[in-house]
Every structure is written in C-alpha cells, then in structure tokens.
Simulated assay, not measured.
Amino acid sequence: MGQTFGKEENKDLIPVIGKCYDRYFADPNKKWNSAEFYHAVCETVEEMNKMLGCTQFRVPKTSTLELAYHNHHKGKEKSLSKEEFQRILQDIILDSGVTGKGIKDIFLFIFGIPIVTTFIKQRAAPNAVPNDVFIPAVTSASVFLLAKLNKL
C-alpha cells in the first residue's frame, strides 16, 4: 500500500550504489571539482529512483552535499572510498528526505474524495443518485485512479 521507502529497499540499493561508485569514482587519479561531484551524486540518486520504480529521493542541496563530503572524506589527497561514498549518500538522503507520500494519498483518495463529492452531490442534486450507490462508486473510482497512478 503506497510507495514509501522502507528497509527492504535499503538492501536493494547497495548494489546500485556500488555500481555508481565504480562508474564515477573508481579512477583514483581523477581530480574532482564540486560540480562534477554533485553531478555524479545526482546521477546516483536518479539510478536509485529508477530501481525503486518512481521518484522517492529528493535531489540534495549543494550545501548538504559539501558538508557530507567534508565530514566523511578523510583522506583529502586520496580518492573517495566506497565506504565514504555510501556514508555520504546516507547523510544526504537522510537530510534531503523522501518524497513518497503513499499513505497520505491513500487517505485522501479513499476517504477525502468520497466525502467531498457526497457533500457536493447533496448540495447540487440530493435525490439524483442514492447515497448507497454513489459513495461506493466514488470510492471505487478513486481506488481505480490510485491504481492507475501506481500509488497502490
């Protein structure tokens, strides 16, 4: 129910993080500037979102990324290690947050929309369709919409 980030997805993200590390950071002789590093992290976040099937993680702020980089990259003259990269990603994801709001969508669609449409129906045409038919029909339509939008 709803697409939110949980512990099960965390295990699946470790290979994605490793693959992105190998793609962007495996060369120990590459000199990084902040724009290239930010781009590589954004590409990694995009890969994690693709793996989860929808947009889950927000793109981090530059200040958050720089702070996490300076906190975790100990060997300033050496290249970034895989463990340091994972810790940096953990910090920026925890700070940036998750955009999945599955439970809010479910409550809005399953309870909110039928209630609002019932009030509107009662004002506009109270006797046009009986409430015993109207409320389940609107609820079913909102569940169908949730399914079509991949929220369920």
Rank of each mutant, 00 (worst) to 15 (best):
P15F: 11
E77F: 10
L89N: 05
D105Y: 12
T99H: 00
N127E: 12
I115C: 08
I93V: 14
Q3W: 04
N10M: 13
F109N: 11
P114R: 06
S79R: 09
V98R: 01
E84D: 09
S63N: 10
A40P: 05
L89Q: 07
D95M: 13
D132G: 10
H70Y: 11
D132Y: 14
E36P: 01
F57H: 04
I14G: 00
P130M: 08
I110K: 03
V133T: 09
I17M: 09
M48D: 03
F119Q: 03
I92M: 03
H39P: 00
C42D: 08
D22R: 11
P28V: 11
A128I: 09
T44L: 03
A35D: 12
S79T: 15
V16L: 04
P136Q: 10
E47T: 10
Y38P: 00
L152G: 02
M51C: 11
S81K: 12
D95Q: 14
I113E: 04
I92T: 09
L89M: 15
V138S: 03
E46M: 10
Y38F: 14
G97F: 08
V41I: 15
S63M: 11
C42P: 02
L80M: 13
V129W: 03
P114M: 08
K61R: 14
F109I: 01
F107R: 07
P126N: 10
E43Q: 15
K78W: 04
T4H: 01
I93G: 01
V45G: 02
W32V: 03
E47Q: 14
W32H: 03
I92N: 02
S140N: 09
Q56C: 09
E9D: 13
R23W: 06
Y21T: 07
L80F: 06
K101A: 09
K7V: 15
K76F: 07
K151I: 13
C20R: 15
P15L: 10
D22E: 12
M48W: 05
P126A: 11
L149P: 00
T4G: 02
E77P: 00
E9A: 12
S81Y: 05
K104R: 07
E46T: 15
K19T: 13
E9I: 14
M48S: 05
P130C: 08
P114D: 05
T117C: 13
F25S: 03
K101N: 07
F111Q: 01
H72G: 01
H72N: 15
N10C: 07
T44I: 08
A68V: 10
S96Y: 08
T99K: 02
I92V: 15
I115P: 00
A147R: 11
V98W: 00
V45T: 14
N71P: 00
D91P: 02
F119I: 15
P60A: 09
N10T: 14
